[in-house]
């Protein structure tokens, strides 16, 4: 089949989304299925066929998602209902929409695209509260994500540096 000339092709739009929390391994196919499920659930099969959503690429914690021009609103509503990827809780934060992929690549954080080489060599501090030990898994400015130590029943807590300072200064058994 011959390729259609540009004037006869559908106009597309691209959405740049950030996947929270950081550190979740992203598989484009699984992300596509999660988004497709959300679009079909909110808008139905007929509208999903008009939106024609697709995951173009995944880089770090960013993904570029394609849709037909004029359906960005519907797609963004559907994206806000994506809460699970496999069994991991996620949230998709829409950063920007554009007509070209190149302009969206510029919006990705450069630090994420080129991570520092010695980032993981610093000693990892440990925190103890509510009778459990936690280790930080991600720090970004004031935001600190900690995860329960051990490999069973690990639950991620979303805290701030101020919370951890408070915890180190005083023992608060049941509150942060």
């Amino acid at each position: 089949m011959t390729v259609r000339p540009p004037t006869l092709r559908d106009k597309r739009r691209y959405l740049l989304v950030r996947v929270d929390p950081p550190g979740v391994p992203l598989d484009p196919k699984e992300l596509y299925y999660a988004i497709s499920d959300a679009v079909t659930s909110v808008w139905g099969d007929a509208m999903a066929a008009i939106i024609v959503q697709a995951v173009i690429c995944v880089e770090g914690r960013y993904a570029i998602i394609r849709c037909r021009r004029g359906t960005e609103g519907e797609l963004s509503i559907a994206l806000s209902t994506v809460t699970l990827l496999r069994d991991t809780r996620i949230a998709l934060r829409i950063i920007a929409a554009s007509g070209t992929i190149d302009s969206l690549r510029d919006r990705m954080q450069p630090a994420i695209r080129n991570p520092p080489a010695n980032a993981n060599e610093a000693p990892v501090p440990e925190y103890r509260f509510c009778g459990k030990e936690y280790v930080p898994v991600h720090c970004d400015g004031q935001k600190v994500d900690v995860i329960e130590k051990g490999f069973k029943n690990t639950s991620r807590l979303f805290l701030t540096t101020e919370d951890l300072e408070t915890l180190n200064a005083t023992t608060i058994p049941d509150g942060i």
Binding site: R93, C130, Q142, K143, S155, R156, L157, F158, L159, T160, E162, D163, D174, G175, I176
Partner: peptide
Amino acid sequence: CPFPNGDSSVRRFALEAAAL
């Protein structure tokens, strides 16, 4: 519903809310 009802502290909620 911040910690202990949820998994995020109230300060973190405030930070994220401002960003959103």
